[in-house]
């Protein structure tokens, strides 16, 4: 792990992406702790409606005269946390499911894998929409629905890793040493499978950020007054022709975040697998 880390720190792209990710996350955390509610409420006296970017409003204002820049800062909190939390949910469900399926194998494993097939053949959107209606379209609802559609990949990956690792000698050694099955999974199998899993999780984050924005676009994302980059961009789409700044800036931030996480994932994968890195 340490080796991989130091290799990672030697990659320029990785460093740039990592710093973007860190600064976006810092922005998100700061906006959450600062609790600047002015970004929500509309200013009834404002005459700066739909104004283009200027020195007083760096990114312009929306149809209610709200400053887009402060709304984007505010939105970062939900967008980033939805991305990361979804990835964590997917990681937890996926790892648990995948390691059970991989380790126990046999009938149970087959059965569990069939479960994944079924989960795959339910359209993501159906699950997300129904969950959204059921739980409500707050942050929790979105998180649960996004988590529910994104764990399957991780589960498959973990299972494959474990099946491969089970053939290795150290597992036999642990078994003959009398270790329990759960202990073997936790102590020996998972730590060795962690590399590819981390990479997969890194790729889940941008996926979740994109899914959230898509949900917002079809009107099933976060319900107002909460706002995320996704909801901002989809609001902006409606005035694409006349006020392109409203879609441009939120999209730019989505793009930055997603791109950084994707490239970071690439670099992580390369760092973890030096054989690939040589290319």
């Amino acid at each position: 792990m340490n080796q991989a880390w130091s290799r990672l720190l030697k990659m320029p792209t990785a460093l740039i992406c990592l710093s973007i990710v860190i600064s976006l996350s810092t922005m998100a955390i700061l906006s959450a702790s600062g609790l600047d509610l002015s970004a929500y409420a509309f200013d009834q006296t404002s005459n700066d409606i739909l104004s283009p970017p200027s020195s007083s409003h760096w990114m312009g204002t929306d149809e209610l005269g709200r400053d887009l820049c402060s709304r984007i800062i505010y939105g970062s909190r939900l967008s980033i946390s939805i991305g990361i939390l979804t990835a964590l949910i997917a990681l937890i469900i996926g790892t648990a499911y995948g390691s059970i399926a991989g380790f126990y194998g046999g009938k149970l494993g087959d059965f569990l894998m069939r479960g994944i097939d079924i989960a795959y053949s339910l359209p993501d959107l159906l699950v997300m929409i129904l969950m959204g209606v059921l739980i409500g379209r707050g942050t929790a609802g979105i998180l649960i629905s996004l988590g529910l559609v994104s764990w399957m990949g991780t589960a498959r990956l973990v299972r494959a890793q474990i099946l491969q690792l089970e053939q290795e000698e150290f597992v036999d050694a642990a078994r003959s040493a009398g270790l329990g099955q759960i202990a073997i999974i936790l102590k020996h199998l998972l730590p060795n499978a962690i590399g590819p899993v981390i990479v997969a999780v890194t790729f889940t984050v941008p996926q979740a950020i994109l899914s959230e924005s898509t949900l917002s676009f079809i009107g099933l994302g976060l319900s107002p007054p909460a706002c995320s980059w996704g909801t901002l961009a989809s609001d902006g789409w409606r005035s694409l022709r006349t006020h392109p700044h409203l879609i441009f800036f939120p999209s730019l931030f989505i793009f930055l975040a997603v791109l950084s996480f994707n490239l970071l994932g690439d670099s992580l994968r390369d760092a973890l697998d030096p054989r690939l890195r040589r290319r």
């Binding site: 409606i49 739909l50 149809e63 409606r238 005035s239 022709r241 006349t242 006020h243 409203l246």
Partner: peptide, 8 residues
Amino acid sequence: FPTPDVYD
């Protein structure tokens, strides 16, 4: 008719 366009 999106609202911003009504306004414009």
